[in-house]
Design a protein around this nucleic acid. Structure first.
Lengths: 268, 268
DNA sequence: GAGGCGCTTCCGGTGAATGGAAACGATATG
DNA sequence: CATATCGTTTCCATTCACCGGAAGCGCCTC
C-alpha cells in the first residue's frame, strides 16, 4: 500500500485524525490497532492516541473484542450530507425506473476524479453488480461517468483524460475519442457505455439537472444480450425529468440549497 | 485565566474538531463561520482553523456562498457504521410490516440515554411523525424505547429512570411504575405506549435479537382511533423473527460482527 | 521458556495549536 | 458619501499539548 516515507506531509493533528478514519472502507469495517496504524501510515503510539480521541468524540467505537469500527455518530452526521437528501428525493423515481425497465439502476454524482454512487437498485433480472452506495466508478468508461463528465468543469475533464485506465478490451483510452463522445453526449443528452467497464454489461445514462447545472446522473445497466436498450431510454428521460423537477423544487425550499439566491431584483 | 463558559474544557484538538462537527444537525445543515463558532462554543479564530482542516480532510465542504456543510466523505464513512448494515438487513421486513398493517413503522437501537431511529417507513394512513432516521426518541415513553430498555444493562435503566421527563399528560414519571412495566415487557415480549410521547398516538414494539441479546426494536405507530392494534401484533412478531434470523446470519458471516467467537470448546 | 505479536503507558523535547487583535470586505444606516 | 455593523481572514508571540521511540505487559504459539 502506502510508503511511510513521506509519512508526515500533514501538519495538522486534525488531518491526521481524519487519515485514521480513512483506514476504514467497505472491505475493512473493523480494524484492530495495528491494522489501523499500518493502513493509515502513522506510528502506532500516535494512532493509539488519536483513536482514543475519536472514540471520545464517538466517531469511532471500540468493540468488546478490541477492534475499532465506525460509530453511529458518524452515520448520523453523514445523514446531514447532500447525498442523503439527493438519495431520498430520487428514490421514488429510481423505483419507477426499475419497475419500468426491469434493469438495475444507478444514481451517481461527481466526486473529484470519479463518480460517487449515491444509490443502486437491483432490477428483477439482476446483474452481478457490486458497486453499492458509497462506491466509486470511473468517469471515462461508464455511462453515468460520461454523463457527469460531459458537463464537468475543464479541470475535471483534463484529469479524466489523463488517467484513462483500461478495464476491458473495449475501454476507450484515447482522450480524443473520449472528447468526441462527450460532444455527442452533450448534443443528445445520452451517455452510453458498451462493455467499457465490465464485460457483458452495457449501460445508458442521462443527467439530472438543478438550477445551476447538472447535479447527478441516472443510469441503467443491462446485460449485453438485452435486445433493445433504447426502450429504456424513454423511462430514463422521464425519471430524470421528474428527479430534476423535484431537485429544483428542493433547492427553492432550501432543502438542498445551492449558492446564493438569484440577485438582480431590487426589493419592492 | 481560562473562561470556563459553556465551552468544552476539552483537552485534545481532535475532540475540539469533532465538537465543530457536532454543530450541525437536521435543522442546521449549512452554517457560516460565525454560527459554527457560536454553536460549538469555541473561539472564532480556532473554528476557522479547525474548519479549514476538516475541509482538507473532506469531512466538510464549503459552498460557493461561504457556508459550511457536511461533506460526502462523511456520508461515505457513515455507511460503514453498524446502523447501515442493520438498516439494509431489516428493510424488506419493515416493508412487509407496512404492507401488512398499513401503519408507520420504526426501527431503533439503543444509543446512550435514548433510542436512535435507524429507519422509519410511513404507512398508508400516515401519521404526522417527524422522527426520521438519525433522530432520537426517549426511552421511557415510547414503545421502541421501552422494548430496548427492558433488555438494557442496569446503568442505562438507572439513567432512564432518573430523567423521566413528561411529554404528555399520559407520560409515566414514576420509576417504580416504569420498572413494573418493563417486567411485563420482558415477560410478554411486547412493549406499549399509549399517548405517552405524543397525544393521539399509540404504539407497539418488539425486540430484535442477535446472538448476544437484543440489538434493536421494531415498532408500529397508529392513531389512537385504530380499533384493534392487536392485529398488528402478529405482523410485528413475524417481522421481528425474520429480522432476528437475518441478523444472526449476518453475525456469522462477519457482516455485522459481535464480540468474540464463543470460547470454551477446545479445537476439534 | 523462549520468541513473537499486539496493546498500553511513559516521558522529555519541540513544534504545532491557540486566540486576542487588527486588517479586510460586504452590506445596512444616517 | 460617511459611518456603523457584521462576518471573514490574517497575523503572531506564547505556551502547551502532541509526538513517537522505547519499555513494560499480557497472551498465544512453537
Amino acid at each position: 500500500m502506502e510508503k511511510t516515507s513521506t509519512a508526515t506531509p500533514s501538519r495538522s493533528v486534525t488531518v491526521r485524525a481524519i487519515t485514521v478514519l480513512g483506514a476504514f472502507d467497505a472491505t475493512h469495517r473493523a480494524l484492530n490497532l495495528s491494522q489501523l496504524a499500518r493502513r493509515s501510515g502513522l506510528p502506532l503510539a500516535t494512532v493509539h492516541r488519536l483513536a482514543a480521541d475519536l472514540i471520545e468524540g464517538r466517531l469511532l467505537v471500540r468493540r468488546p473484542d478490541g477492534r475499532y469500527e465506525v460509530g453511529a455518530r458518524m452515520w448520523q452526521l453523514g445523514l446531514l450530507a447532500p447525498p442523503t437528501a439527493l438519495r431520498e428525493l430520487a428514490l421514488p423515481h429510481l423505483q419507477d425506473l426499475v419497475a419500468g425497465t426491469g434493469h438495475t439502476v444507478h444514481l451517481a454524482v461527481l466526486d473529484g476524479p470519479s463518480a460517487l454512487v449515491i444509490d443502486r437498485l437491483a432490477g428483477s433480472r439482476t446483474l452481478p453488480t457490486r458497486h453499492s452506495p458509497g462506491g466509486h466508478l470511473p468517469l471515462h468508461c461508464t455511462a453515468v461517468g460520461k454523463a457527469l463528465l460531459a458537463w464537468s468543469p475543464a479541470d475535471v475533464l483534463e484529469q479524466a483524460c489523463a488517467g484513462m485506465t483500461r478495464h476491458t478490451p473495449y475501454t476507450l483510452t484515447d482522450p480524443r475519442l473520449l472528447r468526441r463522445q462527450l460532444d455527442e453526449v452533450r448534443q443528445t443528452g445520452i451517455a452510453r457505455s458498451a462493455q467499457e467497464h465490465r464485460l457483458g454489461v452495457s449501460s445508458l445514462a442521462v443527467p439530472v439537472h438543478g438550477h445551476n447545472g447538472v447535479v447527478a446522473a441516472l443510469g441503467v445497466l443491462a446485460p449485453l444480450t438485452t435486445p433493445r436498450l433504447t426502450s429504456a431510454l424513454a423511462h430514463l428521460r422521464t425519471a430524470s425529468a421528474s428527479a430534476s423537477a423535484d431537485y429544483m423544487r428542493s433547492e427553492l425550499d432550501g432543502g438542498v440549497q445551492q449558492a446564493e439566491p438569484p440577485p438582480g431584483e431590487p426589493a419592492p
